[in-house]
Nucleic acid binder design. Structure first.
Lengths: 233, 233
DNA sequence: CGGTGTGAAAGTTTTCACAGCG
DNA sequence: CGCTGTGAAAACTTTCACACCG
């Protein structure tokens, strides 16, 4: 069907213009996750209404969100899961693999080293670093822990663009500075502090206690529930 | 100070009306985190402009956000850190402790059992459950793992309102159903699936792969690094 | 018919700008 | 003076509603 559409633009290509709102991108991730589940359960097509219902959004919102990136649907039918999955991966940049470096291999870091969910979305932890000599040289979850001094060389040699900070709060800025110096372009920060970073370095913070605080507020104020998930802030 | 303010409303009290936007509440958590850091570094007052700058928000936004909940500042001076911390904890509901149950004690669960950041914000993992008989009875990070069948009784007996789901994706809905049946009011879900829950149960999803996807998008679509100096005309 | 894609309307959030206070 | 608190304006996001398509 793709091949039958008129020519002005290739179906699925981006209107190559607009800066897309961040909240739209976070919903794209949710659509993708849901579509992957649907496809592996054998469903081949889905409408905006069905997809929205599964996630707690309106049909119009699903269509508008997709509309930021191109035209993917078939009127009267809906979307083909396989096509839409591929399109959303193109949008998010996850049709190719992303090696990631981890800084800090404590409890949480070790758990993340073994987390299967990263691979499923095409991320892999390519190297892990710590400053503690007792940890350096150990192999955990199949990854050999390197000394933090080797960070810059590894990032350069293996063209790694993303990093995760999994050190204690007091060390997080220091870790961030090293990642920036090494040329990393994006950071997921699990330490409960705000990093100060050059504007050209992207960052996403994940603060586990803050997630609980948001629940505490919601429960305390018996906030009427907006269905389903809460995308990251 | 507080006692000197004119009477129309008690300082710090909520306009007790409005439904506060979720995004405002998430910023309140960031303000609180930053204030705690400031206070422990010895700073006693702060202006909206300073606080905003530290977090990347405008002064007006900080004031508007606080304005949803009351009046906390002193014109010409700013805010007193200690007062504001207490006020924000009142808002978020974290001036009292929150016991939390954890369902699923795999890699990630074990790491979270040892995470110090929860305690700092007044959360504590009161009990942890697993279905695997090999884990039940073990003590990890000082917590004795119980069998999942004991969940409902524990939640009831200890009046626990919040839970965390740390099981694999395939088991997450099942875990959610058990938490709901046990009377839990809010859930943090670390499994990469959308839960279906009764509207009266709050939930926050944390999907680690999605955080990386958001970075992937940001990095992929990032404008080429701007030359450092761009002074205005 | 069932469903997409999309302008235009409605609603929400952010920024502006300024009166008022200590 | 420096800063808060807050209406009013601007910007942005969501919902509506409908032409069009297979």
């Amino acid at each position: 069907m793709v091949e039958s559409r008129p020519q002005p633009s290739q179906p699925g290509d981006a209107p190559s213009d607009a800066s897309v709102p961040k909240v739209v991108v976070s919903r794209i991730s949710l659509y993708l996750r849901e579509l992957q589940r649907l496809e592996s359960s054998g469903q081949h097509t889905i409408s905006s209404g069905q997809l929205g219902t599964l996630l707690g959004f309106s049909d119009a919102q699903v269509r508008k969100d997709l509309g930021f990136f191109g035209q993917f649907g078939y009127p009267g039918v809906g979307y083909r899961c396989d096509e839409l999955i591929r399109a959303m991966r193109d949008i998010l940049g996850t049709n190719h693999g992303w090696p990631v470096v981890m800084v800090g291999v404590g409890n949480l870091g070790q758990a993340l080293l073994g987390y299967r969910g990263f691979g499923r979305q095409n991320f892999s932890i390519a190297a892990a670093f710590d400053a503690d000599p007792a940890k350096v040289g150990q192999t955990i979850q199949g990854i050999r822990i390197q000394h933090i001094d080797e960070l810059a060389a590894t990032v350069r040699d293996r063209s790694i663009r993303l990093g995760m900070i999994v050190v204690p709060a007091e060390r997080a800025q220091e870790a961030a500075d090293m990642l920036v110096a090494a040329g990393i372009e994006g950071i997921v920060n699990f330490a409960p502090v705000t990093l100060s970073l050059p504007v050209h370095v992207q960052n996403v913070g994940v603060d586990l206690a803050i997630e609980l605080e948001q629940l505490s507020f919601a429960v305390t104020n018996k906030l009427p529930k907006p269905p389903t998930e809460t995308p990251p802030a």
